[in-house]
């Protein structure tokens, strides 16, 4: 059987959606409450990493293929840069040209919210890819090492 035991799999299926939603909340409310793009992105990546640990990497890649993760990774960083560029219309790099809105409303503080979303995509997908890459190594080489250690 691939992955971990039935108990882990069932609980994982149950909580993964909640983790993603919580991560999205942290991203979207990052400019109002503690949190932000990085923290939210890490939480979302953790959901996928949990899937990968419980069900094996194929299950995780079925939901978020490596190619899509690569695209999101580059696109997130690029979006961050482009938002910075929009500020150049006001004469300064990363100038907050969007309306600042009303305090403690979701659509406020100008470009911080789009920047948070861009970071979340970047961080979430790249953390997932880092973990996937290290897991791929593990399959190749660490099994031999572990067997050697045990014997």
């Amino acid at each position: 059987m691939k992955g971990m035991t039935l108990i882990v799999k069932t609980i994982t299926d149950f909580v993964v959606a909640f983790i993603v939603v919580f991560g999205a909340y942290i991203v979207l409310y990052g400019h109002l409450t503690p949190g932000g793009g990085f923290a939210g992105g890490v939480i979302i990546a953790c959901a996928f990493i949990l899937l990968m640990l419980a069900h094996g990497s194929d299950a995780a890649f079925a939901i978020l293929p490596a190619k899509v993760a690569h695209i999101l990774d580059s696109a997130g960083a690029l979006a961050f840069l482009i938002i910075g560029w929009i500020g150049m219309t006001g004469g300064f790099f990363f100038l907050n040209v969007f309306g600042r809105g009303e305090m403690f409303r979701l659509l406020s503080s100008g470009m911080i919210l789009p920047l948070n979303i861009a970071i979340a995509f970047k961080v979430g997908s790249s953390l997932f890819l880092v973990f996937a890459a290290l897991a791929m190594f593990r399959r190749r080489s660490f099994r031999a090492m572990i067997e050697e250690e045990l014997s």
Partner: peptide, 12 residues
Amino acid sequence: AIPLGAAFLIPL
């Protein structure tokens, strides 16, 4: 900004 943009655009 130019080299950073190129660095992210290249893999995309």
